[in-house]
């Protein structure tokens, strides 16, 4: 294992190329604002789906309240930027921090629950957050909270890259393996000295933190945020991305987020049709390919490096 090898260098080069192509075409005006917006949203949803995958795909905790953490990050960052006249970066960090704290507060009691119960509890938590925001006039209430647009493609893309790398590094470490062991067999994990509660809360908190970060990006890009954009429908959307890509596959989540966001953008004028297609897609996927596009495998460039370096 090495930090610098051909594989990592190639990935970096590819990332720079993608970034540069989009940036140049956007500046030149060949890329329409609509496509640019879609690409920025793809970045936001990649962060959301990869972070949910850490909780649901890797640690095996079925959570459907991700939109709740996203909204906490969105409103907290907007609060810093608009009400406190803070910088964008301080807003984003604050949003992530508050979402992480919320993750701990919500995670500690609810992660004792299993399976379906956890899903419903997290769904409930997400809805409570939404209703609280709805009733908080200081942050705009139901009409929404206006935030100046300060996030651009550069911010969105590189924050996405850093987020994915951090989550990937976490998963591919001993601590990440501890999380996976919880998914695989909680009783055995505990018997092997894994403090399962600690790792569940850790995964949940990291996941919530990045959902908050994504929320911050979203808030500072969309001009306005409203509580109703963060309902459990959004949580389901994110879950659908993760499942489509494959639970336990980061590259899968990236593909899932990309496909779903682009599909949604194309069907933006047919919202009902969009939902029907997503619904049918989910059902067919579960029946015929329940492991998603990637299963729990990763798309790897390992053939580029010798076996020893892996």
């Amino acid at each position: 294992m090495k930090l610098f090898n051909l594989k990592n260098a190639l990935i970096l080069a590819a990332l720079i190329a993608v970034y540069a192509i989009v940036q140049m075409t956007a500046v030149a005006g060949t890329l329409s604002p609509f496509y640019l917006m879609t690409l920025v949203l793809v970045c936001v949803y990649i962060i959301l789906s990869v972070s949910l995958n850490l909780i649901t795909g890797y640690t095996g905790q079925l959570a459907i309240g991700h939109a709740g953490f996203m909204s906490i990050g969105a409103y907290a960052s907007a609060f810093i930027v608009v009400k406190m006249q803070g910088s964008l970066i301080s807003g984003l960090l604050f949003g992530a921090l508050i979402a992480a704290i919320a993750g701990i507060i919500i995670g500690v009691p609810t992660l004792r629950l299993r399976g379906d119960y956890l899903a419903i509890a997290t769904l409930g938590m997400g809805e409570i957050v939404r209703i609280i925001l709805l009733n908080t006039d200081y942050l705009g209430g139901a009409t929404g909270f206006s935030v100046p647009k300060s996030v651009d493609w550069t911010w969105a893309f590189w924050i996405m890259v850093v987020s994915v790398v951090i989550i990937r590094n976490f998963i591919n470490s001993s601590h990440g393996r501890a999380c996976i062991s919880v998914r695989e067999n909680e009783i055995a994990a505990e018997a092997m000295g894994i403090n399962t509660t600690k790792y569940k809360v850790m995964a949940f908190t990291i996941g919530a933190m990045f959902a908050g970060l994504a929320g911050g990006l979203y808030a500072n890009y969309m001009y306005i945020i409203q509580p109703m954009s963060f309902s459990f429908l959004k949580s389901f959307d994110i879950l659908a991305m993760v499942v489509l890509g494959g639970l336990g596959s980061i590259t899968g989540s990236i593909i899932g987020a990309g496909l779903m966001t682009i599909l949604s953008a194309y069907l933006a004028n047919f919202p009902e049709m969009r939902m029907v297609i997503i619904a049918v897609l989910l059902i067919l996927l579960m029946i015929f390919r329940p492991n998603g596009i990637m299963g729990n495998k990763e798309f790897k460039l390992n053939f580029l490096i010798s076996k020893k370096e892996r």
């Binding site: 393996r177 996976i180 695989e184 067999n185 009783i187 055995a188 994990a189 018997a191 336990g248 729990n296």
Partner: peptide
């Protein structure tokens, strides 16, 4: 007694 390995690992 009933094997509890981390099967997918």
């Amino acid at each position: 007694q009933n094997i509890r390995l981390f099967g997918d690992l």
